Simulated assay, not measured.
Amino acid sequence: MAELVYKQIIDDLKKKIFAGQFADMRLPDERSLSETYQVSRSSIKSALTKMANDGIIFKKRGSGTFINPLYIKNESIFNYEGSNLGVTDNFQMNGKRPKVRVLNFEVIPPTEELQRDLFLQPHDFVYKIIRLRLFDEEPFMIETGYIPIKIVQDLNQTIIEGSIFNYLEEVQNLAVTKSFLSISAEPSDANDQKLLRLRENEPVGIMEGIFFLDNGTPFEFSHMRFHYKYMKFNTFVSVQ
């Protein structure tokens, strides 16, 4: 419950930051925030520590807590929080969560590459799922995923129109908690241009990788093609 409280505080502070409610780029002190949210100082401290670790705010000794201006300037859609790495829950833009449009759903034999990446045998069939992700009606990603049937046997159209990772966690008691991702860019092709509303001379961002269950089992190989304007990552480096 305490974890939920501090996350709610973070979500609300983020909304206020982007709404410009802290014109001087400074957050109220912990005591004031505790009174505003009617929670303990420890919950406020947990929220501020997480925000500082994520590079959203920084503490200046003797002066207070300030908003990182680069966080506002370079808001990323990649906001991984919670217990799994699903796109539905973790990708946000100005508080909007992605919608899903299923483009293709079929069962296929694994290619040699999939056999290698997901540790499959030639007879281990996989689901091939192609989905278009949108914020409201604006497309930002074409996602092609391959999931072994032997791991989850009952995927259907209704499940893949929502969050597959949430379904795993809530129904199958499995969580996707690790991934290895590579990021690149290339010229957009005709399909990218049609689905992502790109011009012929505009590039597409590529994110490709393997997602793992919490027990270490490779669960999905995913190939994601992004509208280039959404390919923005923030990182915070701290040298101890």
Rank of each mutant, 00 (worst) to 15 (best):
Lys99His: 10
Asp189Cys: 06
Pro122Tyr: 04
Ile151Asn: 06
Thr88Met: 10
Ser63Lys: 10
Ile44Met: 07
Asn94Arg: 15
Ser42Gly: 04
Arg133Val: 12
Met1Glu: 11
Gly162Cys: 03
Gln172Trp: 00
Phe125Gly: 02
Met1Ala: 13
His223Ser: 15
Ala23His: 07
Asp24Ser: 15
Glu81Pro: 02
Asp12Met: 10
Val152Trp: 01
Ile147Asp: 00
Gly216Asp: 02
Gln38Leu: 08
Ser32Cys: 00
Asp154Arg: 00
Lys99Gly: 14
Gln157Met: 09
Ile77Gly: 05
Lys229Phe: 02
Leu155Asn: 05
Ala2Gln: 04
Arg199Lys: 13
Asp24Lys: 12
Gln153Cys: 04
Ser32Arg: 11
Thr36Trp: 08
Arg197Gly: 08
Glu208Cys: 09
Lys150Ala: 09
Phe125Met: 11
Gly20Ala: 14
Glu143Asn: 15
Gln38Gly: 15
Arg41Gly: 05
Leu85Thr: 13
Ala23Thr: 14
Val87Ala: 15
Ser76Gln: 10
Thr88Cys: 13
Pro203Leu: 04
Gln193Ile: 06
Arg116Trp: 00
Leu27Lys: 02
Tyr37Thr: 10
Asp189Lys: 06
Arg225His: 14
Thr65Ile: 13
Thr36Ile: 12
Arg225Val: 12
Val87Phe: 14
Met51Thr: 08
Ile77Tyr: 05
Asn234Lys: 14
Arg97Gly: 12
Gln193Asn: 10
Ile159Pro: 01
Ile210Val: 15
Gln157Asn: 10
Ile210Thr: 13
Ile56Cys: 02
Ser42Leu: 03
Leu196Gln: 04
His227Val: 04
Arg31Asp: 04
Leu114Met: 11
Leu27Arg: 02
Gln21Ser: 13
Ser163Ala: 09
Asp11Ser: 14
Ile206Asn: 05
Gln172Asp: 07
Val126Lys: 01
Val107Arg: 08
Ala47Asp: 13
Arg101Ala: 09
Glu220Asp: 03
Gln240Met: 05
Met51Lys: 05
Tyr146Arg: 08
Lys14Ile: 15
Ile57Phe: 02
Ser184Asn: 12
Pro109Val: 07
Ile164Gln: 04
Ala190Ile: 01
Met224Trp: 11
Glu202Thr: 06
Phe91Thr: 11
Ile206Met: 13
Gln157Ala: 07
Pro139Arg: 02
Gly55His: 01
Ile130Arg: 14
Phe58Leu: 07
Leu13Asn: 10
Gly209Trp: 03
Gln92Trp: 13
Lys96Ala: 13
Val237Asp: 04
Glu186Ser: 14
Val176Asp: 03
Glu112His: 08
Phe58His: 09
Val237Lys: 02
Phe22Tyr: 15
Ala175Asp: 00
Leu174Gln: 12
Thr49Ile: 08
